[in-house]
Amino acid sequence: MPYLTLGATSTLPLGINPLLLLAQIINFGILFYVLQRFAFPALFKTLDERAATIRKGVEDAASAKLELERAEQQREAIINDARQKGLQAINEASAAADRVRAQMEAEARVHADEIIQQAQQRIHQEEAATRLALRQQVADLAINAASTVVGESLDGTRQRRIVEEFIVQAEKSGV
């Protein structure tokens, strides 16, 4: 081959050249060193950091889930407690209202009784006064009528007293 005369120094078959072999090994060694020094540590660091971040994220999520469940339980407990307290307050308020109502009813009843008694007393008083005035009027009428009948004036304290006793007896007898 013509172009093999350009300086091929191979002394072994298949073009194996110890110097070229060494050069290729050095070339690979440089590449490996550069990648091992500058690329792979950064790559591993980033992958590890990401794995740690993801792991932490998953753990945080699990922890947050537990916290949420705990908060949910606490919320339920608080709501139940509030509900019970509310019911208790309603019951107490209801009982207090009943008590107040009963008290007010009793007071009103007493007051009403007083009013009735006062009214009855006033009625009795007015009845007595009316009865007295009526009795006097009836006595006057009776005296006048008797005077007219006998043609003589019935005057004097004795006749009035007789008429009034008559009227009292008539009242007692239910006339």
Partner: peptide, 15 residues
């Protein structure tokens, strides 16, 4: 050809 082509030498190293 299976032989590589030597282009030049650097300090005796074939390139």
């Amino acid at each position: 050809d299976v032989n590589p082509d030597i282009l030049f030498n650097i300090l005796g190293f074939p390139v």
